[in-house]
Simulated assay, not measured.
Amino acid sequence: MGLDITVVIADRSWLARVPPRERLPRLRNAWYADAPAGDEGWAWPQGRDSSVFAVYEFPDTLGSFKPHFWAGHRWEPVRDHVAPSLRTELDALLSALVWDGPDGEAEHTDTGFFGEGGRGVVLARSPESVRELAAAWDRARPHLDELHGPFAEHAAVPDGWISDFDAFADLLTQWGDVLTEAARRGWCVVGLSE
Score class of each variant (00 low, 15 high):
L123V: 01
R79M: 07
R87W: 02
A134Q: 08
H81D: 01
L15F: 05
G176M: 03
H154Y: 15
A136L: 06
L172C: 05
A140V: 12
D91A: 05
F168P: 06
A33G: 08
G112H: 06
I9W: 00
G186T: 05
P25S: 03
P102A: 03
P25V: 02
D91P: 10
V122L: 15
C188S: 15
V52E: 11
L93G: 07
W175N: 02
D170P: 00
E76M: 07
W31S: 02
R28K: 11
W70L: 12
V190F: 03
D4S: 14
G72A: 07
R125H: 15
L133M: 09
P25G: 07
A167P: 00
P84A: 14
A106V: 06
S85V: 14
H81A: 02
R74S: 15
D103H: 09
A71Q: 14
Y56T: 11
G101K: 04
S85F: 06
V55T: 07
D103W: 06
G72D: 08
E105K: 09
A16M: 06
T173N: 05
D39C: 11
V122T: 11
W137K: 02
R131H: 12
A96Q: 05
E105G: 05
D39G: 01
G117V: 13
R184T: 12
Y32M: 06
D60K: 12
G47W: 04
R28Y: 01
P45Y: 07
R48H: 12
R26S: 04
H143F: 13
V178M: 03
G160I: 01
G112P: 02
S85W: 01
Q46Y: 13
A135Y: 02
F168I: 09
E105C: 03
R87T: 12
F151A: 00
G115M: 07
A30G: 14
S193A: 13
G112T: 08
D166L: 04
H73C: 10
L179N: 03
R185D: 03
D166W: 00
P20R: 14
E116W: 09
S129W: 10
W75N: 11
F53N: 01
D177C: 01
T109P: 00
P20V: 14
D60N: 13
A33L: 12
S95T: 14
R185Q: 05
A16I: 02
V55D: 02
T109M: 10
A37F: 01
W187Y: 01
V189R: 04
F168Q: 04
V122P: 00
G115W: 03
G117R: 13
G149E: 15
P45D: 10
T61D: 11
